[in-house]
Design a protein around this nucleic acid. Structure first.
Lengths: 341, 341
DNA sequence: CTGAAAGCGCTAACAC
DNA sequence: GTGTTAGCGCTTTCAG
């Protein structure tokens, strides 16, 4: 293992000069710098991050705390994060904290305390008070994506607007019997993603004078969740809506699968919109409010870099839904009047 | 930041004794050990991994090289890895090397060289000679899941057997016009997962005297890939098979979506089997050879731990398909005789 | 069984 | 501009 001393020797300079040339701190003449860099390349020298971290206190590594890897939204964000972090020369260490899992506890109690990172990115985490406390006590910058945590700088998409937009699209098509799948009855309407998307739906419905038709069915934010809810909602032909506003694309996909299985055509007999821009949208003729999770990942990394560099930075970024992408025409069913059952 | 010195002081011993007590190396009297451990707990002491690594050379961290995060199989494996690694007190740093991406090159050239890990786990990687060379030159144990690399200890599932099993299931149901989706024409039949699963299909067909019906359509190992191939395969009613053996569950799901969309019933007019135990299998009435990716993750971690501990370990583990899980009955279509078009 | 001292590989003051 | 020196926080010989 060649160390910086070897590089220095080969270049005919001292270790400190070699270090300066390589890390770019302090004055080095252009000639020396080149010789050192060449020497490093010849030897194939790469600095030991441990040794460097020990003295600088910085690790060139960030921790990512994420509840799922294997749900479309989270996987996509994670890939976005990895790309963005690489571009900034940071490694990424993964902390997978499935809600309620044993590993979640161990991570918060044990692993994070190692502080192997310069900063932390949390994705869609709703931390318990205890977890939040531990997060803060790490004394490293924390930035959150999705759901602003008290005192933590965050990036969120405008969940209310996004869901309102989706619902308005359905209303614009002439639907009135629109149900929302995804909100949880117990949620505070501003505190969680679930809740805010539900709020957007309600807002749209009431604005359109459809308040009496407001109806939501709770669901996991996942494809199987949407499927289960879909079966329930579509099951009874007498109460079946003509359109569904889904809290996420994954829910929407699950719902559509359920609809097809039930023999209800999609979208001719039923319109479904979701939020996120899922890669399956096309396959399922899904209409979607596009809000790329990858870009969300990029945005949160940018924010963290701002914090790390100590410069000024926004403390709360709200991503606005820019456009509604229609992957298929979703015509309103005939005979859907103002006076449904 | 409290250091080991503080712990030592509080316990009334020297740093070296404190270190021994905490890391379990060398002799410490039981009483002292307890006092040190208590002191550490009181202060909330956690050793700096950097400092420790610097001197021991071990990092308590493993690198995971994976081509996708956001494909079901890979996401599932990754979650399995994370769990298994945590259990062994290892951190996980993620290297996402999408084939052909710019980050892939940077990772192999730059990031891996930092050697922030005691070992490397690769998932379904087909490295170029150059990449393989770099991997080896890291001088850290490398274990591979899926596809044995020359000179690298590996865990694989028995792809040939798994695919044969799936195909035999269809044959057993009375099908003869069975096409395989997933193999790539260019593949060596033993070198890649694609290739081996194709081989298993061919084996089953020939064993059953159906060699003349062997037909495969190449596809990405993904849901959209399966969808595209499915549209193509099912599109023409004259050549349409009665059953499909898919190289993976994701392909199978895509195929089923295509089938439904084309108006071909599933499974009444078409049977599809896949490999892996996908969580969507139930939603899609998919028959599957179960081979949990999570367990594969666990297995590969066990193997790596064996290598790291220096003890004896198997150098190549083959996971055998244990069972075929039927999520729905897939009756053969009537009139499917020995003499298809 | 315990303590003193050396040093892992690097960067950051500080002199020159 | 460049070299010398002093650690970063820990583990590990090596005496005692």
């Amino acid at each position: 293992m060649s160390g910086i001393a070897d590089v220095a020797a080969l270049a005919g300079v001292s270790k400190s000069t070699a270090s300066r040339a390589l890390t770019g701190g302090g004055y080095v003449s252009e000639g020396t710098r080149q010789r050192v860099i060449d020497a490093a390349r010849v030897i194939g020298y790469v600095a030991s991050p441990n040794a460097a971290s020990l003295v600088t206190g910085r690790t060139k590594n960030v921790g990512v705390i994420i509840p799922f890897v294997n749900r479309w939204y989270f996987g996509e964000v994670l890939e976005g994060l990895e790309d963005a972090l690489l571009a900034c020369d940071y490694d990424l260490t993964l902390y997978n904290v499935r809600p309620g899992s044993a590993s979640r506890a161990r991570i918060f109690e044990h692993f994070l305390a190692r502080k192997r990172f310069d900063g932390i990115i949390t994705i869609g985490i709703e931390p318990s008070p205890d977890e939040l406390e531990r997060l803060v006590s790490l004394d490293r910058p924390v930035v959150a994506l999705g759901g602003q945590l008290p005192g933590i700088t965050s990036v969120s998409i405008d969940d209310v607007a996004v869901s309102r937009l989706a619902t308005e699209h359905l209303i614009g098509l002439g639907h009135s019997r629109i149900v929302h799948i995804g909100g949880e009855r117990t949620d505070d309407l501003t505190t969680s993603v679930h809740g805010r998307r539900l709020a957007g739906y309600i807002e749209a419905m009431e604005n359109a004078g459809l308040g009496e038709h407001v109806l939501y069915v709770p669901s996991d934010m996942s494809v199987p969740g949407g499927y289960a809810a879909g079966v329930q909602v579509i099951g009874d032909p007498r109460t079946r809506p003509t359109a569904i506003s889904a809290a996420s694309d994954e829910v929407a996909v699950g719902t559509i699968v359920a609809a097809r299985r039930t023999g209800v055509g999609v979208p001719s007999d039923l319109s479904v919109v979701g939020v996120d821009g899922h890669e399956y949208a096309e396959m399922f003729s899904l209409t979607t409010v596009e809000q790329s999770p990858r870009d969300q990942g990029t945005a949160i990394v940018e924010l963290l870099m701002g914090v790390l560099s100590g410069g000024p930075h926004e403390t709360e970024v709200l991503l606005h839904p820019t456009r509604l992408v229609v992957r298929s025409s979703t015509a309103p069913p005939r005979g859907d009047g103002a006076n449904p059952s």
